[in-house]
């Protein structure tokens, strides 16, 4: 796979997105592409519009203008629950797990779209339904092994520490077996060791599972070693796009991040 070759058609294409909340513009004429097989980082200071962009991809927010093309569908017109079936999974900045379920069931719940037992088969748990449950359990256990969360498999996730919940949420997204994985600040609020673990998992997912990733991150330093390309947002406007080294040297990006540092 050659992620940087321009000739292959993009996996996802966002064109001229405009998103307003009343008078506040969260996205102004934002366009970007995600190429198959790459890790694209979407960075920017707090409030730049990164999460809003992901929410548009998910169908949570409907941009007032613009289109998002993925697998011959315009996501701005696709219902949220169908977008996952097209092959997009995500994690959330503020963790959105099913808190009352075990870690195992959180992952099993993500197999929903891959299973086809009917309501009646579920109720009777007989033959085919039972075989299906077991087959999917196998897939899920593989992900549990990969993320090294065997020990908390049967723990209710609401009671788990933050770092582990982040990991379970990543597992749940993986359990969808998506083509495109959207990660919203997967390393925020973690200690150094947890951040390193998460970075390792992200690289492993990309290499071994051949997944395309869109990584949203606030902290610029973190993504530079992971991403192949970077898109920078500031106040809802795309201010730069390029390789990590190009971005690091870009005066507009430096200014945006300096501006934020001064506010603190």
């Amino acid at each position: 796979m050659t992620p940087n070759s321009v000739s292959t058609p993009p996996l996802l294409q966002a064109e001229n997105l405009h998103l307003f909340f009343g008078g506040l513009s969260a996205l102004v004429n934002v366009s970007f592409q995600v190429r198959p097989g790459e890790i694209l980082a979407l960075i920017g200071p707090n409030g730049a519009g990164k999460t809003s962009a992901l929410n548009c991809l998910n169908g949570f927010y409907r941009p007032q203008k613009g289109h998002i093309l993925f697998a011959n569908h315009d996501l701005t017109r696709t219902p949220t629950h169908q977008i996952s079936r097209l092959g997009i999974a995500r994690t959330f900045q503020n963790i959105a797990l099913y808190t009352g379920m075990t870690a195992l069931d959180n992952l099993m719940a993500a197999r929903h779209i891959r299973m086809n037992q009917s309501m009646f088969a579920s109720a009777l748990y007989f033959g085919a339904a039972q075989r299906e449950e077991i087959a999917h359990r196998r897939v899920v256990e593989e992900i549990i092994d990969f993320l090294e969360i065997e020990h908390i498999r049967k723990a209710t996730v609401g009671a788990l520490p933050y770092g582990l919940r982040k990991r379970v949420e990543l597992g749940r997204a993986l359990a969808l077996e998506p083509r495109l994985l959207l990660l919203d600040e997967p390393m925020a609020g973690m200690n150094v060791e947890e951040k390193e673990d998460m970075a390792r998992f992200i690289l492993d997912i990309h290499e071994r599972r051949q997944m395309t990733l869109l990584l949203v991150e606030h902290d610029m330093g973190l993504v530079m070693d992971i991403a192949q390309r970077v898109v920078v947002l500031d106040f809802g406007v795309k201010i730069a796009e390029g390789t990590p080294s190009e971005i690091k040297a870009n005066p507009a990006v430096i200014k945006a991040y300096l501006g934020e540092a001064e506010h603190k």
Binding site: L97, Y98, I113, E133
Partner: peptide
């Protein structure tokens, strides 16, 4: 049986986080 299979997990998912449930199909 409902509680431990696909149907039940979908129901509990809606109870615990309806937006995340939609995102997961």
């Amino acid at each position: 049986n409902i509680a431990r299979t696909r149907l039940g997990r979908a129901l509990i998912a809606i109870r615990d986080n309806d937006l995340a449930a939609e995102v997961l199909g």
